[in-house]
Nucleic acid binder design. Structure first.
Lengths: 227, 227
DNA sequence: TCCGGATTCAAACGAACGTTTGAATTCTAG
DNA sequence: CTAGAATTCAAACGTTCGTTTGAATCCGGA
């Protein structure tokens, strides 16, 4: 039997992570039992505790597996753009696309489960459990710093707080859009056919975010009225 | 004892709903046990099942209590604006403020628990459980229709799908902003002091949403490239 | 005052949860 | 081939979950 299939290392680990992505997306963390999860992964009930230590550790591993490469890709793309620009400031749209594109490209491959992950991620920013939110925050921190200073360079005239809030809004729009892919019906009343056309969605989302980012500053009068 | 306090009807019901708002916001639906909940409400463990029937029914009652009046208020405000306009089209900003204002006004009163509800609501749009999402959708449907046609009247030149998506984006930005009030740190790196100044937040949010809604349409070239 | 419905209460129910255990099995290096 | 490590397995652990039960208590109207 020289042609026996080579068993990849950590095959069970991977099957568990894939099953977890799908089930956590469908039923949430607490709503997914280890029994259901290991059954779907074709593994023994004890496998999660053996390979990861605990359910919480599995969740952490799940996010690290996808989030680290995704954010590294974003930063690399930003580096590339700045390299190409050769000292000139980037257009805000380029920075937005570098960020948004990474998520949307992942949603396109239903095959390797990226879509499950992205939807799960989108709703985890607002997870009730603080230690989960802070894990996400920690995994995002380096990329977020990088993008913040990129925006600052492109928009030197924009006040610091204003930029932070607008990034917050942009981030939220993206998160919600990815997490709530079936909630468009909430507004549409029925399913639009082009829900999953990632290219079209990217065009629409980018136009919206870019305009929001570059919106006229609230008038001094408005701010004074608020204060 | 003629001065004995009048016992309001359903006093326990109300205490349970208030406790549920706070605990569901802190720990999520599945993460909040009936024992913790009833203890916080100062009620017996069986009280929820007696007054509501089940935990799910409690969740439904919780959303109906706040969401129905809130959306009725939004529609009434829109009616009032259109009355005042006397046939002339409303400004997009007025429509946005009518929608956004209702949420932000509720976040201002930490006293009667509105803030808890709003944060809980914001994350429930993307709840894993489909029957919860569809409950929310059902409770929003009438107001959403009303706002959609208001936007259509104000923006007659905008294609239907584009409007639906932009409303989706706006809705998502609002939902995320309200749900993830502590996630600004994700971008800021530290807590900005004006996190909870609802007036200032409203000015910032409205400026962002208005610009996004009125963003230039993606060029025909972009759409073609996507299709 | 006393009756009858509404509400509260302590106690228990069976089911499902995450985790642990120790033996059985599979894989791999010498 | 074989020893030892890595992995899988069935079974059980103690805990917590949402819900139910039937008696006790409260309370307004006759």
């Amino acid at each position: 039997m020289t042609l026996r299939a080579i068993k990849p290392p950590h095959e069970t680990r991977t099957r568990i992570l894939d099953a977890a992505e799908e089930l956590f997306m469908q039923h949430g963390f607490e709503g997914t039992s280890m029994r259901l999860l290991t059954a779907k992964a074709g593994a023994n009930l004890a496998a999660v505790n053996y390979h990861f230590g605990s359910k919480d550790a599995l969740i952490e591993a799940l996010f690290r597996r996808r989030l680290d490469p995704m954010n590294a890709g974003r930063v690399a793309e930003l580096d590339r753009l700045e390299q190409d620009a050769g000292g000139r400031a980037l257009a805000a749209e380029q920075i937005i696309r570098a960020f948004v594109g990474a998520s949307l490209r992942m949603i396109e491959d239903a095959k390797c489960g990226g879509r499950n992950f992205i939807r799960l991620l989108g709703r985890t920013y607002t997870d009730p459990q603080k230690h989960i939110r802070s894990l996400i925050g920690q995994l995002y921190a380096p990329a977020m710093e990088r993008f913040k200073s990129a925006f600052e360079r492109t928009l030197p005239q924009m006040p610091r707080d204003e930029l932070i809030w607008r990034m917050h809004f942009m981030f939220g729009t993206l998160a919600y859009t990815l997490a709530a892919t079936d909630t468009v019906q909430l507004i549409a009343g029925c399913k639009p056919e082009d829900r999953y056309d990632a290219r079209l969605l990217e065009a629409r989302l980018t136009a919206f975010l870019l305009a929001g980012l570059l919106a006229p500053l609230p008038s001094a009068e408005d701010v004074k009225k608020a204060a």
